[in-house]
């Protein structure tokens, strides 16, 4: 037996053991059909290196700029989730997202149904109703504060319907623990000029996975270029006097 074969066998055993461990920890694979969301190395943070669809994700944002970055990141995820002609529902009590911008992230804005409500309470109710609707690509809810009980209800709903839910929490008063599979924070970082051309480069974000159930939290730098996520190599972003006339 060569050392190469031995190593391969070893790796196989370790992978199997890891899977067994996850099962022992009470983890069940969230979906039978893994969706490739194009997140590259970020996906490795989740168990079995599969992006959890059919589960709840929480996004924290402190400022409007962060919310915009989060919106861009989610739109990038939606592009993959809605690839098969799906529909998604965006529920909010104070929506400022501008639908035409989503088309630059590969999402057709006319396939998003926006539900603009007046009260936070209605948002929770509408979100639960939408999450129960089988077949939706995703449900995005702008929820500022949510109790553990309400989030558990969402979790139960998505376990049944296999809908992916995103909770956008803008300046939550209380960062309480809620039932969700992942907690993210997306913040914008300086873009890099493309081929030394002047002007603003591709949207670039610091993607922080603060919490991942059965996974390994981490921090990455991603940018949206040419219709997909791209990991940014850790290198010092050049800052220079780049204000030049561009128009």
């Amino acid at each position: 037996m060569t050392s190469g074969m031995q190593a391969a066998k070893k790796r196989e055993i370790i992978e199997q053991l890891q899977k067994d461990l996850l099962l022992l920890q009470g983890y069940s694979p969230p979906s039978a059909h893994p969706v490739d969301v194009g997140l590259g190395p970020v996906v490795a943070a989740f168990p079995n290196a599969v992006f959890p669809v059919g589960a709840m994700h929480e996004f924290l944002s402190d400022t409007t700029e962060h919310t915009a970055a989060t919106g861009g990141f989610i739109a990038g995820l939606l592009a993959s989730l809605m690839r098969q002609g799906g529909v998604c529902v965006w529920i909010s009590a104070s929506r400022t997202v501008f639908p035409p911008a989503l088309s630059t992230f590969g999402v057709s804005p006319d396939r998003i149904i926006f539900i603009d409500l007046e009260r936070e309470k209605d948002v929770l109710w509408a979100m639960e109703e939408a999450l129960k609707c089988e077949g939706l690509a995703a449900v995005i809810g702008e929820i500022r504060d949510i109790s553990l009980t309400s989030s558990r209800r969402f979790q139960l709903a998505v376990e049944q319907s296999r809908v992916t839910g995103f909770m956008l929490r803008h300046q939550p008063r209380d960062r309480n623990a809620i039932a969700c599979i992942a907690r993210w924070r997306i913040t914008p970082i300086a873009s890099e000029p493309v081929d030394d051309m002047p002007g603003v480069g591709f949207p670039r974000w610091k993607v922080e996975l603060l919490k991942a159930r059965n996974g390994k939290p981490g921090v990455w730098q991603l940018e949206w270029a040419a219709g997909q996520f791209r990991t940014v190599d850790e290198k010092i972003v050049k800052h220079g006097a780049v204000i030049r006339k561009t128009g």
């Binding site: 409007t64 915009a68 970055a69 919106g71 861009g72 997202v97 501008f98 630059t104």
Partner: peptide, 11 residues
């Protein structure tokens, strides 16, 4: 949908 000019995510 027009994509030739950038549009902000939050308006």
């Amino acid at each position: 949908w027009r994509e030739d000019h950038p549009r902000p995510v939050q308006l």
